[in-house]
Design a protein around this nucleic acid. Sequence first.
DNA 1: TTTTTAGTTGTTATAATATAACACTATGTA
DNA 2: TACATAGTGTTATATTATAACAACTAAAAA
Lengths: 135, 135
Amino acid sequence: MNKMRKEHNLTKNQKIIFDLIDKSSQPLKAYSILYNVQKKGIKAPLQVYRALDKLVEIGKIHKIESRNAFIACHNSSCQVAKATAFSICEICEKVTEISSAGLSKYLANFKDKDGMKYSKYNLEFFGLCKKCTLK
Amino acid sequence: MNKMRKEHNLTKNQKIIFDLIDKSSQPLKAYSILYNVQKKGIKAPLQVYRALDKLVEIGKIHKIESRNAFIACHNSSCQVAKATAFSICEICEKVTEISSAGLSKYLANFKDKDGMKYSKYNLEFFGLCKKCTLK
DNA sequence: TTTTTAGTTGTTATAATATAACACTATGTA
DNA sequence: TACATAGTGTTATATTATAACAACTAAAAA
């Protein structure tokens, strides 16, 4: 298996689960995914979690840690899940992946007090989305 | 209750649980906290979670979302849990709160594509700590 | 002082999230 | 073919977190 390859051939379960997440307008939770794919033959939590783990690993989806939910990656630059940033609306729970060259660059180069750099990061912003601000 | 006040008078349970977390060199998980405070009369998960919720709310502790664990705040500038950043070692799981004026300023002023600012953020960096880098 | 109020407590039960272990199957490659 | 690697299906279980309700407490208002 060529690790450099960008196109991963998803297996049946991975494809079913990725398609569901990809079509969704908001992040999906593991058990909600499970209920939605039971008619397609995926019966157990573990089948879902295994597919999710793999999809996260190859960067097709991201986990929103503060929500225990999963969202498809629509950011062509993050084929791997190593540098992620999201905005989360605290009212409607809308989540948007942020793709800002400035932000990525700043964080990728950030060094702590000891001068250490880190290989991955995950950033979650919270506040109100445009819609909810206007209400 | 004066919300401006910096010193919150912790209740008995909150104090027991804060002291435990504060003394710990690494983040603690809720059920590990529970086992550790059972001899002090805290018997149920909910008693722990309620104290944790309150302590997070007033900024005495922070939740490390990717680990479902809690760490005491040693950063005098974040009395409220609205702007947090951590480094997490992927080998030894050591977690350190980052307090960098530059980083805070950059993130507090960050605007997304639509020009939206957000009122809170949580950032988690992953990599190797100094010790584990040398191994 | 009495009353009110908000917040905390103790408790049982249960929901939601996630992994262990094992036997088996598919697929690519030597 | 034979081997290695990864994925599957399954049952059981571990881990993380909340619902609901009655009782108690401390501080502020009347």
